[in-house]
Design a protein around this nucleic acid. Structure first.
Lengths: 208, 208, 208, 208
DNA sequence: AATGAATGAGCTTTCATTCAT
DNA sequence: CATGAATGAAAGCTCATTCAT
């Protein structure tokens, strides 16, 4: 692979929630490399080189390469879940909560945890089935918050389609932004949030 | 990897547009394996075994493993592009054209080419840059049709957001269905199409 | 390997003694390819392509790739041995015979059989031991002529060193010309012959 | 190939200039195997087995099989060049220098570096063109010493033919000794040196 | 005779992981 | 904790040879 283009750790955006411990440094480098080279095409030597240690030393912090992958995914979910809960606590109405959820998810994908979130999606089946279950457990907690808000909105007649399906469509639209969105004046993150919110509330005014 | 679960070719859904030539058989098996095991975790021996030939024989039909990956992607795009053009030709108004586009894209992801389409998304950077360009050229043609329809709808005031961005959000929502949608009575493919169409036309009635 | 530089059969110098039969065409191409790419780095497909047939067809004329190698070597020896005997028959004195031997050997290396002769030297241990013996039998006949002439010259006091060893040194000097000599005005084949002859008769005048 | 005849490292003559480091052990085994089996017919597994390591471990010391071949050649040239310079420094007259050059070259071919020198000749075009240039650069330095001495001898009227061509003939005669010379009482290395020296000074007495 | 798809053993190389230091 | 040489299984790919047509 095109290893020459991969930078040193200092040039990689700091992944939210990870400190400068060896563990944190490895996970940040891993998120970056797994995202841009793929999990399988990234060697533990690549990873060690970016972190600035020898490949054997990685195994003092993680028991296997897959363990690193799994940790990247879990940290991403955990960190964003925490932020999401904080944001939700401040939002009063379901509409505002929905906006907070959208905004939070966009930030998780487009901000410092973006690479880890992309890894979560793109390297999903590099995980053994038991590890998939382990990560899914975390994810379900997160999804429950979405379903709760969407269910309220449906009960209020503000959205019309089944919350479960509707959430899935929105999840896809949001996740995909990581592949194309780049912040610019004419389309700030707030603008993007509003655009997705319009999508989420589609059909709302049909009743009005 | 989890090879024991992988079936023989006869059990793999026939990928649209591929005949029973050796080439077609290889591409169908490849789409399936690449989708469920990942490109890197699928060995040429895996592939040969499913097709029912020896691994060396693969290289009579394709010059490399990456060549197979690229062919899977190109066949999927080409086949669906052809079907999409046919469907578009029959739709008169932009609204109907939009529905045809959504329906076609959902079929491409949920129908016989679904595995190949997923490979196109998930294994994108297993392709060398020059091959990415080659595939992108095909893809651009396809996207142009979407943009044309969305632009017309915007000019008519039916959608409000910039077509380019709007298309991206819809593309994400539709692509993601491959990860969760399973046909059932309470949510047929037609129902799903209408649900996405509602999303696409979000805000339409706000003006009314 | 650098296959693109390998020409069609028409551009390869006609190896002496080989007609335009399929067998002859294969041997000429083989001498050329084995010389410039090495025996192992030349595939039967390379060979077939240059000859203008399919690789499977080669095996109607030769039972194996090694069989082709062996035939190249044997033809070269046989052809040059015949020419050498003819030349020797015309030379009267041992000195003239020596010159004829030198001239003949230089021609075999620098002329149309040069590639085959180089293969004989450089691919010697691509041959199985039994085939080596088979070729050596031919070679011994050829060497006997040299030894006879050198022995006569030694008996006449014209050369001083043991004929067997002296022949070996000369054989090396002559064989190596294939790696550097290119005909030019200031060093024709005749000039080269005389230069080697001077070497062969070294020390001659010390007695005089 | 005839692998059963290949011995363990301990039975292979110690190639001059190489210590007992892993690198040195590999190069000595490689010189031996490449010489007797040919470069292409020697597998990295053969090589590893003789060295007493696993095949994968070779690639900690050399980046490729060709890298090993190249190192064998370069070490041989470098080592012999150093010895040659030392010997030349002690020789006063051009005649003595010529004898030193001949003696040194014979030793390089018949002594501990003999296998490596043979590999240099016989496996030359297993090297990629750029590597050939790299090795040629080393070789040119070495050849310059020969030409200088031969040119002096020509200016003194001691040899008559153009030094460049004369050197080539001698080089062939000397290189070829590796294929036939075995030390014995009636033909020691000194005797052989004198025999080649007589050749080199051929025609000398013609003027006398 | 000629074809060319198919074979399958064997090649070089990669790489996660181990472990003596 | 860190190192980095060593491991050895497995990868993608090659290629002489076969054989049904």
């Amino acid at each position: 692979m095109n290893m020459m283009t991969i930078k040193a750790l200092e040039d990689i955006p700091v992944m939210g929630g990870l400190d400068d411990s060896p563990r944190g440094r490895v996970l940040r480098a891993a998120a970056h490399l797994f995202r841009h080279q793929g999990y399988n095409r990234t060697t533990v030597r690549d990873l060690a080189r970016v972190v600035g240690i020898q490949s054997g030393s990685l195994f003092h912090h993680f028991s296997s390469k897959e363990d690193i992958l799994c940790a990247v995914m879990e940290e991403a979910i955990r960190y964003n879940f925490a932020r999401m809960k904080a944001a939700m606590a401040e939002a009063i109405t379901p509409q505002l909560q929905l906006r907070a959820l959208i905004r939070g998810e966009l930030e998780s994908i487009l901000g410092p945890t973006g690479e880890a979130m992309a890894v979560l999606v793109y390297e999903w089946n590099a995980l053994t089935p038991e590890r998939q279950l382990q990560v899914l457990a975390l994810r379900d907690e997160y999804e429950a918050a979405w379903l709760q808000v969407l269910t309220q909105l449906q009960q209020q007649g503000i959205i019309q389609h089944p919350p479960f399906f509707w959430r899935r469509l929105l999840a896809g639209a949001i996740a995909w932004t990581g592949n194309w969105y780049r912040p610019e004046k004419s389309m700030t993150l707030d603008d993007l949030t509003d655009m997705v919110l319009d999508m989420a509330l589609a059909g709302r005014a049909q009743d009005g």
